[in-house]
Write a protein that binds this DNA or RNA. Structure first.
Length: 938
RNA sequence: GCGCACGUGGCGGAAUUGGUAGACGCGCUAGCUUGAGGGGCUAGUGGGAAUUAUUCCCGUGGAAGUUCGAGUCUUCUCGUGCGCACCA
């Protein structure tokens, strides 16, 4: 019998599905284990070979945990709202729901053919109304909550209203907008309903505010900070400009400190934690208030160096700072206005790209030093960012290089306040070694003490206080798009109102065009939307409509990260129509034990999800405040793109090895046109696109045409995508699974190449031959030999350790060694080959199931316990390395393991060679490690 | 600029806690096997030198250090990749 993988794989996939082998129950005697993959966005291109990498790893782990006796939850679903489906809809007019559904079908087929042990009965899709009903519901909870700093948690807004009406807001410690003011209980009760609503908006965890947002005109929508890379949109690479708009925001800043602290208790990679810490950007320092000369206002700045307060020689305001227009003197007015206008015109990108040019202008105004009362000139400079701190800095040129450069450029004095430091050429930014001088009461103190003392003094005269600043901004939550979750919001007298839970979900209406309008109004705002069924249903049923004036619904939709910020909780109870998930399910599964996904989500999904989880925890809805205990980032599998060279301005292509001095444009060619020797199938390329039909080709010898190769991210637009389908067809899913693991460490980025796949495929064939001969099963009930036991147990040990450490690549090697050894040992013993099969099962489940059945078992191999290894089979002798004191002579001894530790020591010491080497010297001790090495320490 | 990874044969990569570097696979070389659905088996394969029962020397980007012993630990340096970036 031959190893017929296609038959075997189809058979067992059908079996698993029919028998619901991987169905997880929400209660069990076994301990629970939750293994989760980051769910995919179902794109039109289907899965490529990079997608399954993480899924294979998590599947191996999930299967391993089942063998180890855990009740394993291993679900899968789709992050199915998103831009590509919408852009496709804009181009073709096809409804995103239709294309999404088709794409999901493809994904499911591809996932199934790889034999993953997902519990599909728990599938979720973020774009299905049954799911996004609860996304909307969470939004409402956020709207109905505020962040109480004194208890350090989110609290219902009703409690706040009660406090307002009883005591006003004087004693309330909350994270809120700064524009709010103090009022008494009496004030509050006299405010109009609308006024009260306006005030409450400044406290809510999701709030509507006019904010300066990142507007991407090309995409017609706003973007969050993490969706912008180097000043252009992450998707599409379009320019992004700043624009003031009224938008929903998420008050994630309220959770900055807890998001930071929470990192300490989760087992995520350091790199990923570091980038979250970076993104949160905590800096400890002081807020300092400078009075203005001849002007009844103050400038508040944030500084991390209050110790350098005596080194201040000017102040700088961001060009967008509100004080700029107010304090500028008549003489300076023209100049300042010109400058501010000029900076406003520059795009964010230009400003970022050009950090070297120093520019600024004097306002003519002066601030007063809080301690010396010295007059300090106030400047405007674009190196100060409006969005960070207060948008103003106290400039200490001797202690900050940017201030130093600015001062030098504009000839502002640079007082030196550091002891024994030369600042003739550059500033002195060393915090650790700095000793303050020339600073009155701070003289002689190092950074820390000087800072504390300065803050104390500032607080005493009410010119400042210690303060911690975070870089983390509130996240803009509105998108002017069609294919996203609608908000459960309507407006009454201009104030947002939540639609009640009974009327959820608010579903997407049909529209004729998915394009945002030219002015940036969302697609839901197109006229035909007013036939929106939901509007009728939700609002009419709710009797909120008087049939004359329609209360407008919110027309924006939620961003891509809304649905993915809580889906891991939904898997626990995926079909609950009454609740987000039942508390029984939530309390049983608690959190994800192992989460596998790409590191590109570090500052997006993984931060937002932690935020929502903490919020839901505060409300008592979920039992844990971190959703994923352990997280592993699988590395990306890269594609090897092929480029053909076209001589600029012509339709002549030139073989890559012929290119010398010509100016050549490199154009992506589909990798399927290129063979392994980098030669292009010219005819296939010609007929690829019309523009190439008439092209001429300057070829290499023998009419061969070479392409240039380059490794890049796999992407449809780079024509370097390799689908797993062809591999599955040619070698089978088990080969693909093993090969992707064999390729290298899970976390590593690696280019895809199929050169080595014959190796793992050969392994599977050998494995098969180990059990099945020409006439069927060759395994018999024979006593195993010592060698066979040794091979088995060292394999069990290694594979167990490898899986626990996620070193899946080395276990594949271990299997190969084992099969080679068993073959050499002519092993036919059932007591060896059965447990060995269980070891292989998580990696190559189809062949394992088939052989298990051939061995005469009726149960699925996935229900069998993982074998335990036994040390005593492992080593029969100990290698001894008595050291040599002259560095040249080294030798080994074979010692029986039966000997006790003491006996081994004795044997080593009495050994003739040891004696010779020690040459009469007496060693301090002999270190014996069983199975390994003997150390003699002299 | 700041932070975090990582540098091992022709290639992907092994190497336990500091203990025979290069496992395993690909590729390559030689041989055997008519074997015919991407073959199977055997031997060899880091570099160099002499010599063929083998022996010696050098070898983990580079330089130094700790140690009886370093791919592994420390310092410096070069290179590559990633993240953040005028963050006060």
């Amino acid at each position: 019998m031959m190893y017929n993988f296609s038959e075997i794989e189809a058979k067992w996939q059908k079996y698993w599905s029919a028998n619901k082998t991987f169905h997880a129950t929400n209660s069990s005697d076994k301990p629970k284990y939750y293994v989760l993959d980051m769910f995919p966005y179902p794109s039109g291109a289907g899965l490529h070979v990079g997608h399954p990498l993480g899924y294979i790893a998590s599947d191996i782990y999930a299967r391993y945990k089942r063998h180890k006796g855990f009740n394993v939850l291993h679900p899968q679903g789709y992050d199915s709202f998103g831009l590509p489906a919408e852009q496709y809809a804009i181009q073709t007019g096809q409804h995103p729901a239709v294309t999404t559904e088709a794409n999901i079908k493809t994904y499911r087929r591809q996932l199934d053919q790889m034999g993953f042990s997902f519990d599909w009965s728990r599938e979720v899709r973020t774009s299905s109304p049954e799911y996004y009903k609860w996304t909307q519901w969470i939004f409402i909870q956020l709207f109905n909550s505020w962040y109480n700093k004194s208890t350090d948690k989110a609290t219902p807004i009703s409690a706040l209203i009660k406090m307002f009406s009883e005591d006003g807001n004087a004693n309330i410690e909350a994270v809120r907008d700064d524009s709010e003011f103090a009022f008494t209980a009496q004030d509050w009760n006299s405010f109009s309903l609308q006024k009260q609503q306006q005030i409450l908006l400044q406290y809510r965890l999701t709030y509507l505010a006019e904010t300066e947002v990142n507007w991407c005109p090309e995409l017609g929508t706003v973007l969050a900070n993490d969706e912008i890379i180097n000043g252009v949109s992450e998707r599409g690479g379009f320019p992004v400009v700043r624009k003031k708009m009224t938008q929903w925001s998420m008050r994630i800043s309220a959770y900055a400190e807890r998001l930071l602290q929470g990192l300490n208790k989760i087992d995520w990679t350091d790199a990923l934690k570091e980038s979250q810490r970076n993104w949160i950007g905590k800096s400890v320092g002081a807020s300092v208030v400078f009075d203005l000369e001849n002007y009844d206002s103050t400038i508040e700045v944030f500084t991390t160096r209050p110790d350098t307060i005596y080194g201040v020689s000017f102040m700088t305001l961001a060009p967008e700072h509100e004080l700029v227009s107010q304090i500028t003197t008549e003489e300076q007015k023209a100049e300042v206005e010109t400058y501010v206008l000029a900076t406003a015109k520059r795009s964010e990108r230009e400003r970022m790209a050009d950090v070297k040019t120093i520019s600024g202008v004097f306002t003519g105004a002066y601030a007063k030093h809080p301690f010396t009362n010295e007059l300090i000139p106030v400047w405007v400079g674009d190196y100060v960012l409006a969005g960070y701190g207060t948008g103003a800095v106290m400039a200490v040129p001797c202690g900050d290089q940017r201030d130093y450069d600015f001062a030098k450029h504009f000839n502002i004095k640079i007082p030196n306040i550091f002891e024994g430091v030369d600042i003739a050429n550059e500033s002195y930014t060393d915090k650790v070694n700095a000793i303050i001088g020339n600073s009155d009461f701070l003289n002689g103190l190092p950074y820390k003490e000087a800072s504390e003392k300065a803050i104390e003094a500032l607080e005493a005269q009410k010119h400042g206080l210690g303060k911690t600043n975070y870089r983390l901004r509130d996240a803009v939550f509105s998108r002017q798009r069609y294919w996203g979750e609608p908000f459960p919001v309507y407006y009454k007298d201009g104030m947002p109102q939540m639609i009640t839970k009974d009327h959820l979900p608010i579903t997407l209406p049909e529209v004729e065009k998915y394009l945002p309008t030219e002015k940036g109004a969302p697609p839901l705002g197109r006229a035909d939307v007013w036939a929106w069924d939901t509007l009728q249903n939700a609002v009419v049923k709710n009797s909120l409509i008087d049939h004359k004036s329609i209360f407008p619904l919110e027309l924006n939709t939620m961003p891509g990260w809304a649905g993915s910020s809580w889906y891991f909780n939904r898997y626990m109870d995926a079909h609950n129509s009454d609740e987000f998930a039942s508390s029984e399910a939530l309390n049983y599964w608690k959190e994800v034990d192992l989460y596998i996904g790409g590191s590109e989500h570090a500052t997006g999904h993984l931060l937002y999800a932690r935020f929502w989880q903490k919020f839901l925890f505060d409300l008592g809805i979920v039992p844990v405040d971190e959703f994923a205990k352990k997280l592993i980032n699988q590395g990306m599998i890269l594609g090897t793109s092929a480029f053909v060279g076209r001589i600029e301005g012509t339709n002549t292509f030139i073989s890559a090895d012929k290119v010398t001095s010509e100016t050549v444009q490199w154009i992506h060619a589909d990798v399927s046109f290129v063979n392994s020797s980098d030669e292009l199938d010219v005819e296939a390329f010609r007929s690829w696109r019309d523009e190439f039909k008439a092209a001429t080709f300057i070829t290499h010898d023998n009419n061969l045409f070479k392409v240039k190769r380059e490794v890049e991210k796999m992407s449809k637009s780079k024509y370097n995508v390799v689908s797993p389908d062809a591999i599955c067809e040619q070698y089978g899913a088990d080969s693909l699974r093993l090969y992707e693991m064999f390729l290298g460490p899970l976390e590593q980025y690696k280019p895809w190449n199929t050169a080595g796949i014959t190796g793992v495929h050969g392994f599977l064939k050998k494995l098969w031959k180990l059990y099945i001969g020409k006439d069927g099963l060759t395994v018999i009930d024979a006593d195993p030999s010592k060698d066979q036991l040794k091979t088995l147990h060292k394999t069990i040990k290694k594979v167990t350790e490898d899986i626990e450490n996620f070193s899946f690549n080395t276990s594949v090697s271990t299997f190969m060694i084992a099969v080679n050894e068993f073959t050499a040992q002519k092993c036919t013993s059932r007591s060896i080959l059965e447990p060995f099969l269980v070891l292989v099962a998580p990696y190559a489940p189809h062949i394992a199931e088939e052989l298990w059945e051939q061995l005469g078992h009726e149960n699925s191999i996935s229900t069998v316990a993982f074998p335990m290894f036994n040390d005593s089979y492992l080593v029969e002798s100990t290698k001894a390395y008595p050291i040599s004191f002259n560095g040249k002579m080294r030798f080994t001894m074979e010692l029986s393991l039966d000997l006790s530790k003491e006996a081994i020591e004795e044997a080593v010491m009495s050994n003739e060679k040891t004696q010779t080497q020690l040459a009469g010297r007496v060693p301090k001790k002999v270190i014996v490690v069983p199975g390994k090495i003997v150390n003699i320490v002299g």
